[in-house]
């Protein structure tokens, strides 16, 4: 069971309190109607599915209810950092990347 740091509550809590919410930074276009079918497909379905450091969303669903972002290594499942929705993806140094 993962331990996850909620950046809003500033507490590290067990996975059972959280719901995974998919890849982070997938932006819904301001005017979806102007999107091509391919662009809309990319928004709906295409995912990086990174083997390595993955920027992803979690919701503290049984806590504050907030969605936030995390960088997690998908091979070790280790969380490198979590950050609030809307903040840019943090830059990691190399040692963290290989965690």
């Amino acid at each position: 069971m993962l331990l996850i740091h909620c950046p809003y509550c500033d507490e590290t809590l067990p996975e059972l309190e959280f719901a995974y919410a998919g890849q982070a930074h997938v932006v819904r276009a301001a005017d979806p109607s102007s999107q091509t079918d391919e662009e809309w497909r990319d928004f709906l379905f295409i995912r990086d599915n990174v083997k390595g450091v993955h920027a992803e969303r979690w919701q503290h669903v049984h806590g504050c209810g907030r969605f936030f972002n995390a960088l997690r290594h998908t091979v070790s499942d280790k969380f490198l950092t979590t950050y609030k929705a809307g903040e840019p993806r943090p830059v990691l140094d190399d040692t963290e990347r290989s965690a």
């Binding site: 919410a21 819904r28 969303r57 919701q59 969605f67 929705a85 809307g86």
Partner: peptide, 13 residues
Amino acid sequence: LNMMEDYLQTEWG
């Protein structure tokens, strides 16, 4: 509710 929260928090801040 989750879907509403999702759009509200992450798309329509």
